[in-house]
């Protein structure tokens, strides 16, 4: 059933997000062209400078708007589809609450990452001066796989170390996205357990969860640094030592993120399972 939920979720959110990403792409590409070739036109038509400035400003605004839109769609979809009138249909489907939550979570993550990927790719395109470089020349700027292997061997870094580092970095990014979504979901789900002032209670829970996790993070961070001071503050004599310290920090962050994610997920599921109060 998750596949079917995902299909309908993509259909519902794609109506908003695909045009947003399309407009964003068009604006940034246009702004990029203006920056590259605008000077030649401005030298002939001075008024074009105003138009070009507006296009660049629109592109910057578009980047911010797209980021905001991805979050707004994520929040609005959960609220309207599960806690509003549409919830009468969604909660009477023969699917579990977990299916409903995961479908929202996966689709929101996809749109958030798609938005950031588009911004990253278009941003990269903007800074690379394609007029001066060919693709081959760009690639020569990067070390070859053989060079990377040799450098790693010299530093004593195994292939496994590198893959684990990449995997951990990906997991941290994924977890931060999950926590962002679940933070909103848990607050709304708990807030809607009340029969009155549901939106106000959702905001109270959002702020409360934020405060709780900040306090927990602060306490856990201080305690773990005190108990592992020798390892955290040891002098990094080699690149390998630095890498180990980095991975230790990343693992701590990952562990803490997973705990946060688990708490938020349980709160969301319990709110929908045990405290559903559709008006």
């Amino acid at each position: 059933m998750l596949g079917k939920l995902l299909k309908h979720e993509f259909r519902a959110t794609g109506r908003t997000m695909l045009p947003v990403l399309g407009v964003l792409t068009a604006l940034v590409v246009l702004a990029n062209l203006v920056v590259r070739f605008g000077d030649q036109i401005i030298s002939r038509y001075r008024l074009a400078a105003v138009l070009f400035a507006l296009i660049v400003a629109a592109a910057v605004f578009g980047v911010i708007a797209a980021e905001v839109m991805a979050i707004v769609v994520m929040v609005q979809r959960f609220y309207k589809n599960l806690l509003g009138d549409e919830g009468y249909l969604m909660h009477t489907l023969p699917v579990s609450v977990h299916g409903l939550i995961w479908s929202k979570l996966i689709v929101s993550l996809v749109w958030i990452f798609a938005t950031n990927l588009v911004i990253f790719l278009l941003g990269t395109l903007s800074v690379v001066n394609l007029g001066d470089l060919s693709v081959g020349q760009i690639m020569t700027g990067f070390p070859s796989a053989e060079e990377i292997r040799e450098a790693m061997a010299k530093l004593g870094i195994t292939r496994m170390d590198l893959w684990l580092l990449i995997l951990e970095a990906i997991l941290i990014v994924l977890c931060s996205g999950l926590i962002t979504c679940l933070h909103f979901y848990a607050a709304m789900s708990l807030g809607h357990m009340f029969t009155q002032n549901k939106i106000l209670m959702s905001i109270v829970f959002f702020v409360g969860i934020n405060f709780l996790f900040s306090a927990m993070g602060g306490i856990l961070g201080t305690v773990s640094i005190q108990f592992n001071a020798d390892r955290f503050f040891m002098e990094s004599s080699t690149v390998l030592d630095g890498l180990r310290q980095l991975r230790m920090m990343m693992n701590s962050m990952l562990g803490y993120s997973l705990v946060q994610g688990l708490i938020l997920y349980i709160a969301t599921a319990l709110g929908l399972q045990k405290g559903l109060n559709l008006a």
Binding site: N81, E86, Y88, L93, P94
Partner: peptide, 16 residues
């Protein structure tokens, strides 16, 4: 839920 067909007393279908 697979055996119950429910009609609520309010509009509940996505209007788009």
């Amino acid at each position: 839920k697979a055996v119950v067909s429910y009609l609520p007393d309010k509009p509940y279908l996505a209007d788009w």
